[in-house]
Design a protein around this nucleic acid. Structure first.
Lengths: 182, 182
DNA sequence: TATTTAATCGAACAATTGTATATTAACTAT
DNA sequence: ATAGTTAATATACAATTGTTCGATTAAATA
């Protein structure tokens, strides 16, 4: 399968567009291969030629989101008015702005109906960002990275469950408050 | 449906036993309703009379595990030699001993193939334990509970990925080290 | 013990899945 | 522009799912 073949590009683009539209109407686990193909006007065999299940298409969206997450983190800290530079790496908290940007995707990723795979993809991404960070690179306690990564996700879960009512900046305040308490 | 009816008890017991055996051979998502019923010698209609999917049976195991988790946490601290009483609520770290006890179940709960639902069931349980804890009851920052609960699960995820090589006591040491660093 | 209740069964149903194969159409490279 | 390649198609298949139905039978109850 040549991913530069125009037919492949068109098919995948078609599937992506159709899935995006479907996700506005129903949750990911309810979207069947049959339905997706019917709407995209492609043969079901063609779908299985490229993917194993609908979730695999979603994973391709996921890659883009994870790229933005990484970029968000590496962005210079222009928005750190609430953060005390000495006490906390301000970059960390750019994560909330990223989540806000992709809110609709995070509603899917964090919903309990989907596979846990997406959760761990997010976890791995955040963890590897923390590992590569120079601020914490000196630390020997390896468990700390999993601890911290998942702690941040804990905040995002809570935020999601409150329907993303707070702003990203307010989430930063919550994080700072917590780090003060610990 | 009367859950005290002998027939119901027998059927459920039968299904539980069969699923337990099947889980020794293959991962949860690969276990089909048809297969489970065939092995249990019950009608597929009977299964759907009690459950919606195989995962619902697993959830009944889950309830028992969560009960033990709660009990573990409320246990008096007899095993706290590594913990400095003043700095850390020692009960928290009884969680690792509980995970060790139910290791085989946590391998399923934490595997990426299953639904995220189990993860959130674990999260909710740990979170509500922390919320009800008198040590932290005075705290106003509600996000802290989600932060801390998920941080602990982060350690468990790391532990799971290292194939539970460390002992529960060693996990306590990791936790103490991390809390010292923060 | 006899009667009532309801759990279980057997069978059938449409829908979806996952796979396979031969054919057609579209693309690439020369 | 042509030939070779291969993605996409149409079609068929067995297996599983989720649901429904009346018939059966085991259990509760009086």
């Amino acid at each position: 399968m040549n991913k530069n073949d125009l037919r492949v590009l068109k098919t995948k683009q078609n599937i992506h567009l159709t899935l995006t539209n479907l996700l506005k109407k129903k949750p990911l686990p309810q979207i069947k291969v049959t339905e997706l193909c019917k709407l995209a006007n492609i043969n079901r065999g063609t779908f299985y030629f490229h993917y194993q299940e609908v979730g695999d298409v979603f994973k391709e969206f996921f890659e883009e989101i994870m790229m933005d997450l990484r970029e968000s983190y590496n962005e210079p800290y222009r928005h750190t008015k609430y953060i005390e530079r000495e006490k906390l790496d301000p970059k960390t908290v750019r994560i909330f702005h990223h989540v806000q940007k992709y809110e609709e995707f995070y509603r899917i990723i964090l919903s309990k109906e989907v596979s846990a795979e997406y959760y761990y993809m997010l976890f791995d991404e955040i963890r590897s960002i923390l590992v590569e960070d120079k601020y914490t690179a000196h630390l020997k306690e390896n468990y700390l990275y999993s601890y911290s990564s998942n702690a941040i996700i804990g905040l995002i879960i809570e935020w999601y469950r409150r329907d993303f009512q707070e702003s990203a900046d307010e989430m930063n305040i919550h994080l700072v408050n917590i780090l003060k308490l610990c």
